[in-house]
Amino acid sequence: MYGTVNGFTYGWITPVVAYVMACLGAALGLRCTVRALVMERSRRAGWLALGAVSIGSGIWTMHFIAMMGFTVDQVEINYDKSITFLSLGVAIAVVGAGVFLVGFFGRGAPVLLAAGAITGVGVAAMHYLGMAGMKLEADLAYNTGTVYLSIGIAVAAATAALWAAVSVKGFAASIGASLIMGVAVTGMHYTGMAALRVHLHDSGIAGGLGGASPAAILAPVLIGPVVFLFLAGVVVALDPPGVQQTRYEPVREPAQGRRPR
Rank of each mutant, 00 (worst) to 15 (best):
A49Q: 05
A49S: 08
L50K: 05
S54D: 03
G56I: 05
G56L: 03
S57C: 15
S57L: 10
G58P: 01
G58S: 13
T61I: 12
T61S: 10
F64R: 00
I65H: 02
I65V: 15
I65E: 00
A66I: 08
M67R: 03
M67T: 05
M68L: 12
G69I: 08
G69M: 12
T71R: 11
D73Q: 15
Q74C: 08
Q74G: 06
V75A: 03
V75Q: 01
V75D: 01
E76L: 14
I77C: 03
I77G: 01
N78K: 11
Y79V: 06
D80V: 12
K81W: 13
K81M: 15
S82P: 02
S82L: 14
T84M: 05
T84I: 13
T84Y: 02
F85W: 13
F85G: 10
S87M: 04
G89S: 06
G89P: 03
V90F: 05
A91N: 07
V94A: 07
V94P: 00
V94L: 15
V94K: 03
V94C: 10
V95C: 14
V95T: 15
G96P: 01
G96E: 04
A97M: 14
G98K: 00
G98C: 06
V99H: 00
F100G: 12
L101V: 04
L101Y: 00
V102H: 01
G103H: 04
F105I: 09
F105W: 11
R107I: 13
R107L: 11
R107E: 10
G108D: 12
A109T: 14
P110V: 12
V111F: 07
L112F: 04
L112P: 00
A114T: 11
A114E: 03
G116F: 04
T119Q: 04
V121C: 12
G122H: 01
G122Q: 05
G122C: 08
A125I: 11
M126Q: 05
M126L: 12
H127R: 10
Y128A: 12
Y128P: 07
L129Q: 05
L129R: 07
A132I: 08
M134V: 12
L136Q: 01
L140Q: 08
N143C: 09
T146I: 13
L149M: 13
S150L: 14
S150K: 07
